[in-house]
């Protein structure tokens, strides 16, 4: 073992630090019994083997095979499932919609949360109240707020129906695909403002007070300080949240879509996970759904890798 001479307690800095921290930071004092160590890890390992690795492997298997309609096992078909998928405009449609949904809700949720966190951090009157309430939306189940927003945004009752009183037929998420997409984005963003707020505020509070006071002494006003000190120091958090928000927009959107629009009207809100669910469990096309899963997995893995590469850089700021 070529551990650094001054032992694991040494503070690692620099871009390679993250990698080292994860794999090399170790205890000097350890227990030697291999059996007991393995026994401690065993329950978790058994679970992830059965419910993570096996299914992921199976997804690969299905993606490259086709089930015989009259039974008799699966036939290897190479990339045909993927080619079929990629030639299907409906599938490209679901990717495009997922991107529109993911990007707009991310921008909306992060923008609002950043503004609220920056202002809350100024510790004006009532900041304790803000700090408490802005977290609440994240506690609500996506489908529950889906139902709440379905009512609030309903064309014939609730709140937004007011618009239809003034201009009949202007707003109708049940018929107009664009309206439906807006409704889903608003509901999802509302929840994730709460999530982003938690992280932005905690990052802001991590900035040393002295830095901000020094800037203030030099005559920088609050806006200037936000632009030149707080925002640059927030970039790691910004990037981290960007990735998390987009990943969550793939997964956590299912409940909202299923309750609010069921993918409609006319597929206008059929996002990727919803299509996998629909093809796999309603259409019983396991091979097609598995191929879609693989593509989604690759997408999510790409995002995660991107995120880890950036965390390495974050060490610089600390």
């Amino acid at each position: 073992m070529n551990r650094p001479p001054d032992g694991p307690a040494r503070r690692l800095t620099g871009p390679e630090a993250h990698e080292r921290r994860i794999t090399e930071l170790e205890k000097r004092v350890t227990f030697s019994s291999t059996t007991i160590g393995l026994l401690f890890a065993l329950p978790m390992l058994a679970l992830i083997f059965v419910f993570f690795y096996w299914p992921s492997g199976q997804a690969l298997f299905w993606a490259f095979t086709l089930e015989q309609p009259w039974g008799g096992g699966n036939r290897f078909v190479g990339f045909r499932n993927f080619i079929q998928l990629l030639e299907d405009p409906v599938y490209w449609g679901s990717i495009a919609r997922s991107l529109v949904f993911g990007l707009s809700s991310t921008v909306l949720a992060m923008g609002v949360a950043l503004l609220l966190a920056l202002f809350t951090d100024r510790e004006l009157r009532g900041s304790r109240l803000y700090r408490t309430v802005f977290v609440w939306p994240y506690a609500i189940a996506a489908p529950a707020l889906g139902l709440a927003f379905r009512f609030i945004l309903a064309p014939e009752a609730g709140l937004l129906s007011l618009i239809n009183h003034a201009w009949p037929g202007l707003w109708n998420p049940a018929l107009d695909g664009k309206d439906a997409m807006i409704a889903v984005i608003v509901a999802f963003s509302w929840k994730y403002v709460g999530y982003n707020f938690i992280f932005f505020l905690s990052a802001l509070q991590g900035i040393p007070r002295a830095q901000i006071e020094a800037a203030a002494m030099d005559g920088a006003g609050p806006l200037r300080r936000m632009r030149d000190i707080q925002l640059p120091l927030l970039t790691p958090t910004l990037f981290f949240l960007l990735v998390i928000n987009i990943t969550e927009s793939f997964q956590d959107s299912f409940g909202i879509v299923d309750i609010m629009t069921q993918g409609g009207p006319a597929r206008a809100t059929e996002l990727m996970v919803y299509k996998i669910y629909f093809d796999g469990f309603k259409g019983l096309d396991y091979s097609g759904a598995a191929a879609q899963s693989i593509i989604l997995m690759l997408l999510v893995i790409m995002l995660t890798v991107l995120q880890f590469r950036f965390i390495e850089r974050r060490v610089h700021y600390k």
């Binding site: 992830i48 993570f52 096996w54 299914p55 992921s56 199976q58 997804a59 299905w62 990943t247 793939f250 997964q251 299912f254 996970v273 996998i276 669910y277 796999g280 469990f281 396991y286 759904a289 598995a290 899963s293 989604l296 997995m297 999510v300 893995i301 995660t304």
Partner: peptide, 12 residues
């Protein structure tokens, strides 16, 4: 396992 949430590998 952090990388792939359940929703993504739901079918298998």
């Amino acid at each position: 396992t952090l990388m792939l949430p359940l929703e993504v590998r739901i079918v298998p």
